[in-house]
């Protein structure tokens, strides 16, 4: 088995792992993580893998449910962000002039606001809740990818075949659709997947601070912020396991992005 196939196999395994969590959380019956006052504050055991909390809720199922909503939210927000980046990057590089200046200025400006501050600002402005979190995460992540895509398109524009197409009288829009977009797609996909880990981390952070989802919905940020409120009671499992699970998901997304980037890179075709 060559290296490429191995990478492909590992990447598929990661996708499967993430899909299982996402789907399991989405179809999970709420009874699994409902309060059970007979089983409060239990340390981890075979019956409750991650223990139970102060209301007797099973932490394993709550964590899976929380991760599932984090993954779905993160993927959704990153996709919005990446789409925005693709449109703006393409527009700036193809149109040039004033539009380019404006887009570059916006990129600089949004990069100058610390992410957490922007997240607080946007989720406050949109009204706390699901919509606020998605919009906030989407609005914080587009500038980097926009810059990458803009740079890529700018260098493509100087390529011989683009010049040839232009001399045949193709319009800018036609060139963008038939020649430029297909070339940016690999970069775009890698950029999109590498946005996921950041989006999930930021989603968890902003819900941890108390913005976003309602307190009784099992989001990973809320689980950890509840764990913080009860930290003095010594229930270490409330902090440890959901956090490890979150880090595992974020790392999986990160590695997945790197593997896919290697797979899409034509230089690895011979490996």
């Amino acid at each position: 088995m060559n290296l490429r196939k191995k990478t492909l196999l590992i990447a598929s395994g990661m996708v499967l792992f993430l899909l299982i969590i996402a789907i399991a959380g989405a179809v999970m019956p709420p009874e699994l993580y409902a309060p059970d006052y007979a089983a409060k504050k239990l340390p981890p055991s075979a019956a409750h893998l991650f223990g139970t909390d102060f209301l007797g809720r099973d932490m394993f199922f709550r964590t899976v449910k929380g991760l599932s909503s984090s993954i779905l939210l993160g993927v959704l927000a990153s996709s919005v962000s990446a789409a925005l980046a693709l449109i703006l990057g393409l527009l700036a590089a193809m149109a040039g002039g004033v539009i380019d200046t404006i887009v570059s200025y916006m990129v600089d400006m949004f990069m100058g606001i610390p992410h957490m501050v922007l997240l607080v600002l946007v989720s406050f402005a949109v009204g706390r809740g699901l919509r606020g979190v998605i919009l906030a995460v989407a609005l914080t992540h587009w500038p980097n990818l926009t810059r990458v895509i803009r740079g890529e398109v700018l260098s493509l524009r100087e390529a011989q075949y683009i010049k040839a197409a232009r001399s045949f009288g193709r319009t800018k829009a036609q060139i963008a659709m038939t020649h430029i977009i297909p070339h940016v797609v690999p970069q775009f996909i890698v950029g999109l997947i590498l946005l996921f880990p950041h989006a999930i981390m930021h989603e968890a952070s902003i819900t941890f601070l108390g913005f976003g989802l309602s307190v009784d919905s099992p989001a990973i940020g809320i689980i950890l912020s509840e764990a913080m409120k009860h930290i003095a009671t010594g229930m270490w499992w409330l902090v440890l396991f959901p956090g490890i699970a979150l880090v595992a998901v974020v790392m999986t997304f990160d590695k997945l992005g790197r593997h896919i980037s290697a797979l899409l890179d034509p230089h690895t075709a011979q490996e």
Binding site: S205, I231, L240, G243, V250, M251
Partner: peptide, 22 residues
């Protein structure tokens, strides 16, 4: 690589739990 994927607040919680409370 692990640190880069770890949210700041969770590290804070771990330290708080381990070094302050335990």
């Amino acid at each position: 690589f692990i640190l880069a994927s770890t949210p700041v607040f969770w590290i804070g919680l771990l330290l708080l739990m381990g070094l302050s409370i335990r």
